[in-house]
Amino acid sequence: EPSNSKDEMGELTNIFNDMMDQIEHSFNQQKRFVEDASHELRTPVQIMEGHLKLLNRWGKNDPIILEESLQASIQELERMKKLVQELLDLSRAEQIESKGSDSSALLLKTIQQVIKNFELIHEDFTFKLEVYGENLDNPLVQISENHLEQILIIILDNAVKYSDQIHKIDISLEEENGMVKITVRDYGVGIPDEDLSKIFHRFYRVDKARSRARGGNGLGLSIAKQLVESYSGEIYASSTLGKGTSITFTLPLIENR
């Protein structure tokens, strides 16, 4: 019948338009990704090039300059390796479709394991875990264990990196509208209000010189955001300058059956 045919054509047009929008969005995302990556990789390449040219001209005969240039080049190479790995992680995180109900992880078990690993690496830090609410005695959350670990490592790593005098990290869990809310709090340098909304942007660093010195590429929280949102959760931050920062993320709670 003609009316059905019209409806089908209209539906087909809508599907086609949606598909074209997705392709355009994907293309723009890819373009921005390549531009950002090129910009970030340029600096270590230029530093290494400068040192190698210096050595090539006359520095190789001077043991002090030789040592300094080799150390600086190795340091930049390490930075590039880390950056390339983070770029791959970000690229993969962007490709995750919303997982539906086919992924699950034991939240407490995973958090306790990650904390144990951090206590091993950072012996001078105290990590305290608090659980609020009866439904969280052994919560199952809708996310793959691997991705949950990755998010926790990124956030805890940041918390340690930006702690100053007080080497204490608090982790708390609570339930809210069928979601579990995980908050990681440090007592470090804090983030200015104008920077708070941007910390999840790619390559954004509140204090570029300080972040670079601490080995940060400004990609960690961007990867965490992509992962959290791909599992229908959200992530946000609150902070007081000089008092510390809290990063909170939510994940769907699977009813224990």
Rank of each mutant, 00 (worst) to 15 (best):
D157P: 02
L52A: 10
S222A: 15
Y132V: 11
L140I: 12
E68Y: 14
I115G: 03
V228M: 07
P252Q: 13
R205L: 13
A105T: 11
S211T: 07
T43F: 06
L241E: 14
L152H: 00
E123W: 00
T13E: 04
V114Y: 01
K168A: 04
P44Q: 06
F118G: 01
I191N: 10
M20A: 13
L241D: 06
S246K: 06
I199A: 06
E1C: 04
G188I: 01
G190D: 09
F203N: 14
Q29P: 00
N256M: 14
E76G: 08
N56D: 14
I74S: 11
P44R: 05
E149M: 01
Q46Y: 11
G220T: 11
L136M: 07
D18C: 05
S101H: 08
L70R: 10
K99C: 08
L152T: 02
H39D: 12
L88I: 12
V84Q: 08
F118S: 05
L156V: 02
N146H: 01
K208L: 10
E78K: 14
E97N: 10
Q142E: 14
L107I: 06
N138V: 05
F16N: 06
T183H: 00
D186H: 01
T126D: 09
L227T: 09
K82D: 11
R32E: 15
N56G: 06
P44K: 08
P252W: 07
G218A: 12
I199R: 10
G242D: 08
S197I: 11
N135V: 09
N146V: 02
P2L: 03
L54R: 10
D164E: 14
K60C: 09
A37S: 10
L221D: 05
N217H: 15
Q46A: 15
E194Y: 06
D193Q: 10
S163W: 04
L55Q: 09
I154W: 00
G188P: 02
S38P: 00
H25I: 03
K81V: 09
S69H: 14
G242S: 08
E255P: 14
Q226E: 15
S104L: 13
I23P: 03
E176G: 00
D195H: 15
A37P: 00
G215I: 05
A237N: 07
L87C: 04
E24F: 06
T240V: 13
K99V: 05
E130M: 02
E78I: 08
I74H: 12
K116M: 11
S230P: 08
E8P: 00
Q46I: 12
